[in-house]
Design a protein around this nucleic acid. Sequence first.
DNA 1: GCTATACTTCAACGCACATTGAATCATTTC
DNA 2: GAAATGATTCAATGTGCGTTGAAGTATAGC
Lengths: 131, 131
Amino acid sequence: MSSTPVPLPGNVQNMAELLRVVAEPKRLLILDLLMQGVHCNCELGKALQLAPNLISHHLSVLRKAGLVDMERDALDARWVYYTINRAALDELNNAWDVFFGPARIQPRRPSCGPAGTLILDDEMDRRQHNE
Amino acid sequence: MSSTPVPLPGNVQNMAELLRVVAEPKRLLILDLLMQGVHCNCELGKALQLAPNLISHHLSVLRKAGLVDMERDALDARWVYYTINRAALDELNNAWDVFFGPARIQPRRPSCGPAGTLILDDEMDRRQHNE
DNA sequence: GCTATACTTCAACGCACATTGAATCATTTC
DNA sequence: GAAATGATTCAATGTGCGTTGAAGTATAGC
């Protein structure tokens, strides 16, 4: 229960990119609908009052990010249906927890400024016991 | 364990705004450091290789979003220390789960297109039992 | 008082990206 | 074949916002 290895900032770029994709209001709404099940382009357009080309655009961004899958209708290939990529969603949820899970919050005093050099009472106690 | 009331899209705007704040790479890095404990402006600047005014800028964005608190040093008021706002973090985590929690994923066929009007086998079964 | 330090604010710049409208593609239907 | 439908792609536009560099604020030390 001791050394927390301080999560790697290499993931930060990936995480930021995913969050950027998700942070766009229209895309968040699309995801909100897709979480409730399969939708086609026209359906999303109606629900969001958005032109079909814009829906396409946002869906392609979501697909490139791996968050959304598409599938053509077996009977009429003109229709396309979109679904949440469950694996990607799980990954995103895990990554989120790694960053923002409350367990990561740690006590720490800054390493500079008066508060950094100041030796507090409890610190004195700690030093006396260790050395 | 039945009716999931379909989360309100009124929160969507707030959520998107918070995610936008958090999605910025430098800010995500700052949050990453603050999760590990208190930091002052100069410390963050050194860690991120960023000019102090940029740090200030991003911190002010984070503060306006309520995610970060600041506190002046009691001995030397020139130094400012920043911390994660625990309550805001908890709220953010809750909001995230409301949106992206896997439990929200629901089965659904689109309401338009062939797949929408098509009556599948299991649907036939369902109808026979209900009517 | 004057200078140094820690941080903030301001104005200007530049770029990424959502939006728009038109054109294009791929199927299906007649 | 031609027309219609669902969806995508393209070029052009507008703008939000991160960045830059300089000026400003506040406190501390002399």
